[in-house]
Each structure stands twice: as C-alpha cells, then as structure tokens.
Nucleic acid binder design. Structure first.
Lengths: 336, 336
DNA sequence: CTGTTAGCGCGTTCAA
DNA sequence: TTGAACGCGCTAACAG
C-alpha cells in the first residue's frame, strides 16, 4: 500500500498492470461510462492497493477546466498587513469550506491593482474556472470592465445599481440605520462616526447612520475619517479626544476601529459606556471579549461566503444570477 | 485590445495569425530557445495587442509541474471557526506574499485528518508541487509517514529531533522562558499558565515557562488547561477566578487566550496589571489595543513564512535543507 | 462491455 | 532561425 517501489504514475501503468486499456481504467476510476461491475471493482481495488490517484491537472486539461476558483484580494497601497484584518480572514476560511463542499480548490491570490488590465490579464491566464473578488471596493471600474466580457466572477462588497459586475454583500445602509436607532434608544445625542468614507461600503454605513437619525441630529454628527487599520484609527481617535471632543455615542465602521477607539478613550479616562457608548461593525471573534464587550452590527460571514459560492457556481453553469444582499443584525453587549 | 470577438484561445490561433508555427510562438512567448529578435518582438506585440495569455495549466502539464504550492490546514474536530484564529490568518497572508514572489500560486486546502492516509492521498493527487502544513501539530505521525516518501513538504510548528518531517517554528521553549523571567522581574510569585498542553507547541511554551522560574516557584504554578478559542478560554478563566484563585502573574499560551483572561478578570473586579500581570503569546494585531495593551511574546510571522517558503523551494530543488527555529521576542506593554 | 483513436494546449527534440 | 512531429496524463467518440 505504501511500498515506494511500485510507483504507478499514470493510468497507463495501472492499465498495464491490470491487463486492460487506459480508457477502461479511466471509466473505472471516474465512475462514468458503462463498465462491467467486476472489472470496475477489480481495477478500483488495484488502484487503492497501490495508492494510485489520477493526475488532477491532466484530467482538468482534458475537461477544459481547472477545478479551481481564484479568490483575489486586491491590495491597497498599504501592502502587507491587510490580510491580517479579522474580517477578511474569516471570510477566507468560510470560502474555503464552501468551495471544498462544491469540489473546487481555492487559489488564493493577492494582487496589486495596477496597469489598465490587471484583472483581464489574470482572467486570460486561465488559472481558474471562476473568480471571487474580496476587498474594499475601490476597483469597481476595473471590475466592470472585466465583467463585460467575463461572466464567472462575483464580488464581495457594496453592490450598486450601475455596477456591471454582480456582488454579494451586507446591506451596509441598513446596518448604519440599526446603529443609529440603537444609540438614539440609549438616549445618546452627541454622535460621531469613525471610518473610511472614500470606500463605498463604509460610505454606505455612514449614510445609513445619518438616515437613521432624527432630522435635528443629522447635521450635528461628527465625521471622523480614518483608515481602517488599528494604528491609524487609534491615532485618529486619540487626536479627536485630545482636541476636546466628547461625543456620548460613537459608531465605528468596523470592530477593529471600535476597539481602537475604546483603547484611545481609556487613555483619556473616558468610561465606556457611561460617558460614551460605542457600536462597532462586523462582530469579529474578539468583539465579545473586548473591554467592555462590544455592541456591534453583525455581518453573517458564513452566509455571505455561501452566497458568493452559490452565485458563482450558478454563473459558471450559465445561469444569469444576480446580486444578493445580506441583512445585518444588531448584537447588544456592554459597550452601549 | 479588449475586443471580445478576436478571442485567441491557444498559441495555435496566434501562430495562424502571425503566419508562423506554434513552436515559434512558444519560443517567442517563453523567451526560451533561439529566435530571431524581429519575429520574437513581432509575436510579442501581437500577443499583447490581442491580450493573449498562454494557458498555464497546459504549460504546467507539459512541464510536469503544477506551479502551485498547497497550504494545508488540518482541522481539529471543532470544525469551522479555526481559520478565524488571527495568528493562522496572518501567516496565510505572509505565505501568499512569499509564494507569489517565488512565482507560485497558493492552493488553500482545509483538510479533515481522517483515515490512515489522508496526507498521502492528497500528495498523490498531484495538485501541487509542494506542501506547507500549518496547524497545531497533533498529526506528527501522519506527517512522518508522508515525509518518508515525499520530500517537498514543510511544516509549521514545534520541531522535534525524532520527527522525520522538517519544520519551521518559533522556539516555544525560549518564549516560555522569556515570559517567566519577565513576570519574576515584575515581582510576581503566584503564577498560572493558561493553555492547551496536549498540543506540542503549547506544551513547549508551558515547559519553557517552568524552566525559566526559580526552583522554589516551579511546583507552585497553576496549570489551567484550556482549548485556545476565545469562548473556551474565557470560560476556563471565569471558572478559575470564581473558584477563588488569585494569581498575581499569568502566562497565556496565545494572545487570544490572554485577552479572554483579561475579560474574565475584569468581570471579577481584578485589575490588570496591579492585581494580576498578564503575558500573552503571538503579538497579534489587536494586542496593542487590548485593555490594557498586552505584554506578549512576539512571533515573527513574516520571517516564519519566508523561512517556510525558502526551505520548501530548496527541497523542491533537491537540496536537503532542514528544520529552522525562529527566536521569539518579549514586547512589554501595560498588562504587566 | 471494452479497445482504438484523436485530441485538450503547450515544450522540445530533430531536421531542414 | 524555423517547422514538423511527438508526448505530458487524461477523456470521449467511435468501433467492434
């Protein structure tokens, strides 16, 4: 069974051993095509007796497919730590599971979006049967251009009516509304939003937040723009508090940002939630164990990953399936 | 340039268009083999004028390789959230970068270690030119069995002299010693260790911790065994404190565990670091922004990833390179 | 039910 | 310097 000497490296070797033709072996091992029960069993027995596995690459070449789905992570200029973002990482794990269940391999590729045709070039290399793009959607022009000629591609992010490409994403506007209603219900009136605004999904969270407020408060909300990394959001929050701002309710565009804000607040002696309520977005693994445990808008990552894969598979099969939105959910803990 | 009609799908199409043979196109595009400067330039121009890219799968089949490295994540029984662990995830990102730099694709595969030959079976499928195994090393028997016949495989984890397989990993014992010395220097005497002990790398951290203590304290250390997830470690810590234990210094086998402990401590009104100093392991992204900012033993994940890839590539090339250890580093913040 | 044959898209001898 | 022919390991149409 694991004698290294008897190394069968192709179905031809196995065919010779079994005294049959290669196509018979092929039929026996794939289970496709008509074949005598007996010979099929005999060949299968022989195969795993010798630990033989067919060469997937050759099989795929012949079938005109690759058996793999590429997950593309377009990287921003701040190359490096991006994949450390707990949200993306969890998404990746769920995608791996969903794709495995469908019989696909997951080809992970971090790409630097540059040149006019980085995506088209990747597509034409034919390394994958389909593409899932995960990242902050600042590349929608490139995505649209590719989507015009290439169908098996789905994108995680903020869908927009005028996108050519299909997306799956949390309803960020609805999430912002949830946060607004919650803070209002907690009696908070001096409000602030922390997060990126140039990236569509975060802009939508901000917009939803404003939408959810009563008219008289909407113009009073502080907008504190910041990159979504722990360092930068910590700095933004520290500066903001140092400048004397004292909001009593804060909505952060992600849990990482929320936790950084709480760290900065603690340094200033601000108590959460007494002096200031904090609401995050994502519900990452550590949110429950933040100090204090973080109230947040939960994204159902697992459902998102499944939806991405379902949609992609349907498009690979030629169906014309379209954009999906996933409802966010308020999770109340002790930070608010 | 992106006219969809002119879709060249093989070098044969391009050859016809250029009025040359397929082998000439092959030579022009790969840059290998002798060829007239002029025709090479002409064919290359024609290729990217039509956005033509060679089929990587066919190229690899012919070259007898796949161009991909598989990253295997053996999953424990607690299927699911494992990949959410910030450490693994960061490692994955760094591996993606390191492999991309070497021209390899990254094939991500979560495997359920079951049956006697899950690894051998994966290997013989020929989906990758090499394998990197990342995970808690409870599978060393299976790894050794595979390593006996299969050379291009490297493992992240705790190397041991009697392993057949080669590993790259942080020196966990040295990390434990660092933690011990630090807590002692802070005047702590009632000590506890939180973490798994059945998994070699965590057992080594525990062992190092004990090694680093003066003889009279070694036997006094509380060992609090717990799985490494936030939920389970939180529960373990809550129970431990509820039982009346009051250590003044704690070493946690990971930052996630450390943060859970601090959350549980806060619920009991224990102050960190005044009542109890806490030292973690890993230095994940959020460690700086924990409350209070977490003192920890830093693993250099980027160096680890680079070492894994270097080692693997060397073994693919036939060299007999062996196990590498990476030195951990104490990062002092406010939790101790 | 099984074997023969012809490719999938590319690299690489061997001749010309 | 270029082209023709063969094969990487496999599947599928067509015979028998």
């Amino acid at each position: 069974m694991d004698d290294p000497a008897d190394h069968l490296k192709s179905i031809a070797d196995l065919a010779r051993l079994a005294g049959v033709s290669v196509s018979t072996v092929s039929r026996a091992l794939t289970g496709k095509g008509a074949l005598n029960k007996g010979t099929r069993a005999r060949i299968q027995a022989l195969a795993d007796q010798h630990g033989f596995r067919m060469n997937v690459a050759a099989q795929n070449l012949r079938l005109g497919r690759t058996g793999a789905i590429a997950v593309l992570l377009p990287m921003g200029p701040e190359r490096g730590r991006q994949l450390a973002d707990p949200f993306f990482v969890t998404m990746l794990g769920c995608l791996a599971d969903a794709l495995t269940d469908r019989g696909y391999d997951l080809l992970l590729s971090r790409v630097v979006p540059q040149g006019d045709d980085w995506l088209g070039s990747f597509i034409r290399a034919g390394r994958a049967d389909g593409i899932i793009v995960v990242g902050q959607s600042t590349q929608s022009a490139a995505l649209d251009r590719a989507a015009a000629h290439y169908r098996p591609m789905v994108v995680w992010g903020a869908g927009s009516a005028d996108n050519m490409h299909v997306t799956v994403g949390t309803d960020n506007v609805a999430g912002g509304v949830l946060a607004a209603h919650h803070l209002i219900a907690r009696g908070r009136r001096r409000l602030a939003y922390f997060g990126a605004v140039s990236v569509p999904e975060f802009a939508a969270r901000h917009q939803g937040f404003l939408d959810g407020l009563p008219d008289d408060l909407r113009d009073e909300v502080d907008l504190v723009p910041t990159a979504m990394t722990p360092d930068q959001s910590f700095r933004a929050a520290a500066d903001y508090f140092a400048a004397g701002h004292r909001p009593d309710g804060v909505f952060a565009a992600s849990d990482v940002v929320a936790m950084s804000i709480m760290a900065a607040a603690a340094e200033q002696g601000l108590r959460v939630p007494q002096d200031m309520a904090v609401v995050g977005f994502d519900d990452i693994l550590l949110a429950r164990f933040a100090h204090p445990p973080l109230t947040t808008i939960r994204q159902d990552i697992e459902a998102g990953a499944r939806a991405l894969v379902d949609l992609l598979v349907r498009r690979i099969e030629g169906q014309n399936a379209g954009t999906v939105q996933i409802a966010p959910e308020l999770v109340v803990r002790e930070s608010s």
